[in-house]
């Protein structure tokens, strides 16, 4: 597979060997069943060893994996009757953010998410999932629509960050992100946000003000990319690995910091190894949380969201210190 990661190599080699032996057994009629079983046991062990103890940097690599499922992949697996809706009604349509209406378990829902490409050409069209202001404004338009028609909102977050470019600045990248933060806080419908891959700073947060914030096991959420942090700290972006270990950016870290409500497990090796299974796990989590939020009125949903973000942060006072 083209997308194998360095730390997976021993396992992939072993799996290839098993395949070879199987082929041999079939073609030559020599019985290798015992050997195969032994090797398979070894592979299971190795799998546990490698995937059971992923370092933050390894998770970053999985989160950025070129085959990592995208928002549209998840929509296809999780929802039915999806209808994509385009444009911010002001300037244009940003392909780096997709959104639309759909049904989830028969119930109407609005789904919005960052969209990365599947290959180089697609990625260029999608601007690698880095939105311009019109992307955030489209997202906000769809959220207001959901609010009007009393539909819950699902936001799928996966972006390296908001695009740093001339046009983005001219059209108010800052204002677009800020506006979403304010308006999302005021929505009167349930909002569930899931970080599915990269949670790149403000560009991710602009879809991230929810009643529930969940993360996939191998996703990360960070104020600055590990490369950016390394460049600032040690003037060397190749030290990203070290920065990743320091910065508490994994799903588990964020759960401990009280920033996210839950972690959705991934299949061994990451979401891309089994999209169907991953989508199933996500759908189950979404339904559980939607059920909890169902029946809460607009005021309660708003208050819960407000209190949730009001409580974020750590500080002390001179007297307590």
């Amino acid at each position: 597979m083209a997308g194998d990661l360095q730390f997976e190599k021993p396992l992939i080699e072993l799996q290839n060997k098993i395949l070879e032996l199987r082929k041999f057994t079939e073609e030559k009629g020599i019985d290798f069943t015992d050997e195969i079983e032994k090797l398979e046991e070894k592979a299971r062990q190795l799998q546990k060893e490698i995937y059971g103890n992923l370092t933050p940097w390894q998770r970053v690599q999985i989160a950025r994996h070129p085959e990592r499922p995208t928002t549209l992949d998840y929509i296809k697996h999780i929802c039915t009757d999806f209808l994509e809706l385009h444009g911010d009604r002001v300037f244009g349509d940003d392909p780096a953010i997709v959104g639309g209406i759909a049904k989830l378990d028969g119930q109407p829902i609005t789904v919005i998410g960052h969209q990365k490409g599947k290959d180089t050409k697609d990625n260029i069209a999608r601007n690698f999932g880095m939105p311009h202001p019109e992307g955030y404004r489209k997202a906000l338009r769809l959220m207001h629509q959901a609010d009007k028609f009393n539909r819950p909102i699902l936001c799928l977050i996966n972006t390296p960050g908001a695009y740093p470019g001339i046009a983005a600045e001219e059209r108010g990248q800052s204002e677009a992100i800020a506006r979403n933060l304010l308006e999302m806080a005021a929505l009167s419908v349930p909002v569930i946000c899931i970080v599915t891959g990269e949670g790149g700073s403000g560009g991710a947060l602009a879809l991230g003000i929810g009643n529930r914030i969940l993360m996939l096991e191998n996703s990360f959420y960070s104020v600055i990319s590990p490369e950016g942090a390394a460049a600032l700290l040690w003037k060397d972006s190749s030290l990203a690995q070290r920065a990743a270990e320091h910065m508490k950016i994994t799903a588990k870290d964020l759960k401990e910091l009280g920033v996210v409500d839950g972690v959705i497990p991934e299949p061994f090796g990451g979401a891309h190894k089994d999209i169907g299974r991953q989508a199933q796990l996500m759908k189950e989590a979404i339904l559980v949380h939607l059920k909890e939020l169902k029946g809460k009125g607009a005021a309660e949903l708003k208050k819960e969201r407000y209190d949730k973000f009001a409580a974020m942060g750590q500080y002390t006072t001179l007297i307590n210190n």
Partner: peptide, 16 residues
């Protein structure tokens, strides 16, 4: 940067 994602969340908090 030194407070990581908690700093990011202050954007959400002040905006809320």
């Amino acid at each position: 940067m030194q407070e990581g994602v908690l700093s990011l969340m202050q954007m959400a908090k002040t905006s809320a």
